[in-house]
């Protein structure tokens, strides 16, 4: 599967995941989750457009996703949000590597955005966002 399709699959999952986790948050964290939900929905739509422009059929969202651990508290929600952003970062790093021009520029911007969101959820940074084998 090419990098755009993998990223789209991860954006579908992120939209689902933020929908699940947002209800466990309050205040500024809830707002951040809603903002992320909207952002990832918009990116999903942009990716669908990019993939269709290549003449490919965009991968569809799954009807449901298995959450990797029970999300019942704010701490669970923050942990899941962090993991969603980390996974998206890896997808966008792959897009940077495998594309050029405007698509690569988009990959850089979205990798950065995922890294910043992950830092805010996690409260700490990593040296190599999107490159899990290096961290």
């Amino acid at each position: 599967m090419n990098a755009l399709q993998t990223a789209l699959g991860n954006e579908h999952a992120a939209v689902y995941g933020y929908g699940v986790l947002a209800v466990h948050l309050v205040g500024a964290q809830r707002d951040a989750a809603k903002n992320a939900f909207d952002t990832h929905r918009a990116r999903r739509d942009i990716l669908i457009g990019l993939i269709e422009a290549q003449g490919d059929k965009p991968v569809a969202a799954a009807p449901a996703y298995a959450i990797p651990f029970p999300v019942t508290t704010a701490a669970d929600a923050v942990r899941l949000a962090t993991q969603l952003e980390e996974r998206l970062g890896a997808s966008y790093a792959d897009i940077v590597q495998s594309s050029s021009g405007d698509t690569r520029r988009t990959g850089v911007e979205w990798l950065t955005d995922a890294a910043v969101r992950a830092v805010r959820w996690r409260g700490s940074s990593v040296a190599f966002p999107g490159l899990p084998e290096r961290n």
């Binding site: 850089v108 995922a114 910043v116 990593v126 490159l131």
Partner: peptide, 21 residues
Amino acid sequence: DGAIAMLLASIAASESGHAAL
């Protein structure tokens, strides 16, 4: 090239994360 571009993009993303932190 792709591989060095990916490394530099990751570093740039890390730096933006540092700024946020």
